[in-house]
């Protein structure tokens, strides 16, 4: 890896996939730092599409040009049909991020171990979030989730549920085009050397398994404060501590997230919902 590659790394588009949102003031700090780090796509946890749309109109956000995937999709619809390159349209819209453009995405993380409870939750949050992920500490639940079409990601916290990931789960995830979401915050938020070595040991074991089975994965920082945000290049470098190759993780910080978002945007768009199954 040359220094040119790394210095160019700042120009890569990045997506922060798991922002824990508390209040509007903190969100403005997130935007300020995300703009400095050139992170144009922010995914906010536990914010419904409706809440997001009202948030976009709220005061204090005039400095930023916030948009949604639905708006980009609608604006570019004629162009998309002509060229068929949906990813390029989104990327061209977001890059270069000079005029404080941000794509705001909503997501929900379900923390459950029982399949029935997950089914109930999935039913109640239908069409309310753009991305849905599951965090579970039960192997069978994870396998069930990997086959469910409503769930996009399986979240892995290295210190908490990485031991439930095995080879059979990796194959199921790969077969069903699901993605493992690896949270790197435990790597930077550990307090002592013993914990760091534990994260590195468990992380390396996990990455070895994921890479050997070629299962798709993405990196996320899960920032609780804006200072925990990292650029795509930095996330890939942190990932290389877990022995994942820097060069092979090029698509793990933006492209895969965008693919999932585009697929879900099309699914949620009014033009793709038949009248017969539209809810009252």
């Amino acid at each position: 890896m040359s220094h040119k590659e790394i210095s160019k790394g700042n120009n890569f588009l990045t997506c922060e996939n798991y922002i824990l949102f508390n209040d509007t003031d903190e969100m403005i700090d997130f935007f300020v730092i995300a703009f400095r780090l050139k992170i144009p796509m922010l995914v906010i946890n536990d914010l419904t599409i409706k809440e997001r749309n009202t948030f976009l109109e709220s005061a204090g956000l005039e400095k930023f040009s916030l948009t949604t995937s639905k708006l980009i999709y609608e604006k570019a619809k004629s162009e998309i049909i002509a060229s068929g390159k949906l990813m390029t349209v989104f990327k061209n819209f977001l890059y270069p991020n000079d005029d404080r453009k941000f794509l705001l995405v909503t997501r929900k993380t379900i923390y459950e171990n029982s399949i029935d409870k997950i089914k109930n939750q999935l039913g109640s949050i239908r069409n309310q979030y753009e991305i849905i992920s599951l965090y579970s500490k039960d192997r069978n639940t994870l396998k069930w989730a990997a086959q469910d079409r409503r769930i996009d990601y399986i979240t892995i916290e290295i210190l908490e549920n990485s031991e439930f990931i095995d080879q059979s789960l990796c194959s199921v995830v790969k077969q069903n085009n699901k993605i493992f979401e690896i949270v790197l915050s435990s790597l930077i938020n550990t307090k002592n050397d013993r914990e760091i070595s534990e994260v590195l040991r468990k992380g390396k074991k996990l990455m070895k398994l994921i890479c050997s089975t070629n299962t798709p994965f993405i990196f996320t920082m899960k920032p609780e404060s804006p200072l925990e945000l990292r650029t795509g290049s930095q996330m890939r470098l942190l990932g290389s501590l877990l022995e994942s190759s820097y060069n092979k993780t090029k698509t793990c910080v933006f492209d895969k997230q965008l693919e999932v978002l585009i697929a879900n945007t099309i699914k949620l768009h009014e033009s793709h919902v038949f009248e017969g199954i539209q809810e009252a």
């Binding site: 200072l227 290049s233 930095q234």
Partner: peptide, 30 residues
């Protein structure tokens, strides 16, 4: 030049300096 990836990893890894939270933004490598 051989230790550049390691240094950048260290800078990404750092979260605080003497209990002050920090974020190190890499502006360029020359």
């Amino acid at each position: 030049h051989t230790s550049l990836p390691q240094l950048l990893t260290v800078l990404a890894f750092m979260t605080e300096v003497k209990e002050t939270k920090i974020l190190i933004q890499i502006m360029n490598v020359s």
